[in-house]
């Protein structure tokens, strides 16, 4: 009488163990089969051909200052004097005065190279990823300014919060060989 409940309990436990073991093995089996088919993508990155510069990268990132920064492809750049990414629309004087500039944090720097060319560089510590310059450059210039996720800042969230609000699904998981999607002339 005393042994009966124990053996019943043990029997149940054994059944449970077998079921659990089977569950672990079958889930692993399916997962391994899936993972063999193709390797998982580990990084979040913006596809510049899809990006619409809506400005949500600056506000939606889980970090206080977004991990998305503006990147400049010098080899695509036209080195224009009147730069659509650097100057606001309808500026009169092409100087570096605050009233003429587009970047809200003053992260773009302009350097005279030779007539009529100017070089533009971005200070990523100041950039907040709002994409205003990239929008300007894409609508008036060569599109050499564009947004990318800086991988050393990105926390690599399981689900990128920006990707959930991106209107054009430009932000996607990418594999290790596409960590940066650079434009290069």
């Amino acid at each position: 009488m005393a042994t009966n409940p124990i053996s019943r309990k043990q029997f149940l436990r054994q059944c449970g163990s077998i079921a659990a073991g089977a569950a672990i093995i079958s889930v692993s089996g399916i997962a391994v089969k899936q993972m063999l088919k193709k390797d998982g993508d580990n990084f979040w990155q913006i596809d510049p051909s899809k990006c619409t510069f809506c400005g949500r990268c600056a506000t939606s990132c889980v970090l206080t200052v977004s991990a998305v920064k503006c990147i400049h492809a010098n080899k695509v750049c036209g080195y224009c004097d009147l730069c659509g990414g650097y100057y606001r629309a309808n500026v009169k004087d092409l100087n570096t005065a605050a009233e003429n500039l587009k970047c809200p944090t003053g992260a773009i720097f302009r350097k005279y190279i030779e007539d009529p060319y100017f070089e533009y560089t971005i200070d990523e510590d100041l950039c907040n990823g709002c994409g205003k310059c990239a929008k300007g450059c894409n609508s008036f210039g060569n599109g050499s300014l564009y947004l990318q996720v800086k991988q050393e800042l990105c926390k690599n969230c399981n689900e990128c919060k920006i990707s959930k609000v991106c209107p054009s699904d430009a932000i996607q998981r990418v594999s290790a060989d596409k960590v940066y999607m650079l434009k290069d002339g």
Partner: peptide, 21 residues
């Protein structure tokens, strides 16, 4: 933008912009 050349206004913008940043 509408009336350029107003140096006083420009100065004011620069000051405010600096403060904001």
């Amino acid at each position: 933008d509408e009336n350029s050349g107003n140096t006083e206004l420009q100065e004011q913008i620069r000051q405010l912009d600096l403060l904001a940043r």
